[in-house]
C-alpha cells in the first residue's frame, strides 16, 4: 500500500532534487549540532560517565588508592561487607533522619515563612534577605561558626540556656551521641532554609489573585482555598523543594565533616562522611566505591520518584 495519495501530482525531476536538499541540509545541520555538543560531550564522558564506570568497576576490587596494579579482584566481597556493615546502615539511617527533618521543618517551615512574607507584611524584603543570606555563605564557614555556637564551654547555645535559667539543659552538643546529629541538622536546615523560602515565594506569586477572590466569594474556607487552589498551583515548586532537600540531604557531607567529622563514635556519620572515612581515612578505595554505588542507587531511586511526580503533575494539569 502506497502512502502517497493517488491524486497527488507526480513530482517533476527538479522538484524531486529540491525536495532532497532539505534532508541533506538537515543532516548537515545535525552534524554541526553534534560538533557544538562535542566539547561538552567530551567533558561529560571524561569527568562524569567515565568516573562513574570506573567507580563501579573498582567496587569489585580491594585497592589502597596508590598503585592500581596492586588492586585485587574480590568479586562481590565488598557488597557482602556492605550488607553486614552496621556503621554504614547507621549512616543511612542518619540520612533518612536528615531527609525527614528537611521534609517537616524545611518544607513546611519555609512554606509558612514564604506565605507570611508574600502576604505583604512590613519589612518583607528585609526578611527575604535575612533568610536568604546564609545560602550564599560557604557551608564550611557556616559549619565553623556552628562549632563556636555549640561549644560546650563558650558557645552561644549553652550561654543562652544559662542566661534564661535553663543551665541544667547545657549539653556538650557536638560531642553528645544524642545531640550531635540534631545540632548538625539544625545548622544544615538553617543554612538552606532561605532557598526554599525563595522558591515558595516565587511559587505563591504565580497564584492567580482572581481565583483566590472567586473562591472566597464562593464561601470556601481558608483551609479549602489552600488545599484546592494554592497547592495545585505551587505543586511543582513543592516537589522541587522537597526533592532538592532530599537529594542534598543524602549527599550531606561538608557541614557534618566540619562540625563533627561524623562523631562522636559515628553518631552523626552520613553516607558520604562514612564513605570519605573509609576511602581516604582508611585507604580502602574499593569498599568506598561500593558505598558510592549504594548512594548512586539511592539517588537514582529519588530521581525516578521525582520524574514520576513531575509527570503525574503534568498529567493532572
Amino acid at each position: 500500500m502506497s502512502l502517497v495519495r493517488a491524486d497527488a501530482p507526480a513530482p517533476s525531476q527538479p522538484v524531486a532534487e529540491k525536495a532532497a536538499r532539505p534532508t541533506d541540509r538537515k543532516r548537515e545541520g545535525s552534524w554541526s549540532a553534534y560538533a557544538l555538543l562535542l566539547p561538552a560531550g567530551v567533558f561529560y564522558v571524561s569527568f562524569q560517565l567515565f568516573p562513574i564506570l570506573v567507580a563501579f568497576a573498582l567496587s569489585f576490587f580491594s585497592w589502597d588508592g596508590i598503585d592500581i596494579r596492586q588492586a585485587k579482584f574480590l568479586g562481590l566481597a565488598n557488597y557482602v561487607t556492605l550488607v553486614h556493615d552496621g556503621l554504614l546502615w547507621r549512616s543511612v539511617w542518619h540520612n533518612l533522619v536528615v531527609a525527614l527533618a528537611v521534609l517537616i521543618i524545611q518544607c513546611v517551615g519555609s512554606f509558612v515563612i514564604a506565605a507570611i512574607i508574600q502576604a505583604g507584611i512590613k519589612g518583607g524584603r528585609f526578611f527575604r534577605l535575612v533568610f536568604f543570606a546564609p545560602v550564599v555563605i560557604s557551608s564550611v564557614a557556616v559549619g565553623m561558626l556552628a562549632i563556636f555556637v555549640f561549644s560546650p564551654s563558650q558557645g552561644l547555645v549553652n550561654e543562652a540556656l544559662s542566661a534564661i535559667g535553663l543551665g541544667g539543659l547545657r549539653q556538650p552538643w557536638l560531642g553528645s551521641g544524642t545531640w550531635a546529629l540534631p545540632a548538625v541538622i539544625a545548622t544544615y536546615i538553617l543554612q538552606n532554609f532561605g532557598l526554599s523560602v525563595l522558591l515558595f515565594i516565587s511559587g505563591l506569586g504565580q497564584v492567580d489573585q482572581d481565583l483566590l477572590e472567586a473562591a472566597e466569594l464562593d464561601g470556601a474556607s481558608q483551609g479549602r482555598i489552600l488545599w484546592q487552589v494554592v497547592f495545585p498551583v505551587i505543586r511543582p515548586v513543592t516537589t522541587t523543594v522537597f526533592l532538592l532537600g532530599l537529594v542534598t540531604g543524602f549527599k550531606l557531607f561538608d557541614t557534618v565533616y566540619v562540625m563533627t567529622a561524623g562523631g562522636p563514635f559515628h553518631a552523626s556519620d552520613t553516607i558520604v562522611t562514612y564513605l570519605y572515612g573509609v576511602s581516604f581515612g582508611g585507604n580502602d578505595i574499593g569498599y568506598g566505591n561500593a558505598i558510592g554505588v549504594l548512594l548512586f542507587v539511592i539517588l537514582l531511586v529519588i530521581a525516578l520518584i521525582q520524574l514520576r511526580l513531575t509527570r503525574t503533575g503534568k498529567e493532572t494539569e
Binding site: 529540491k18 536538499r21 532539505p22 541540509r25 548537515e28 545541520g29 552534524w31 554541526s32 553534534y34 560538533a35 562535542l38 566539547p39 567530551v42 571524561s46
Partner: peptide, 30 residues
C-alpha cells in the same frame, strides 16, 4: 527560484568530513 527551505540561520553547515576533522581535533586536544 524557489525559496530556500531553511533561512540563513545556519549559513555554513558542516560537512561530514569537516565534522570528522573537528571531532578528531577535539579528541586529540582532549
Amino acid at each position: 527560484n524557489s525559496p530556500a527551505p531553511y533561512p540563513d540561520r545556519i549559513p555554513r553547515a558542516l560537512s561530514r568530513r569537516s565534522f570528522l576533522r573537528a571531532g578528531a581535533g577535539a579528541g586529540l586536544l582532549a
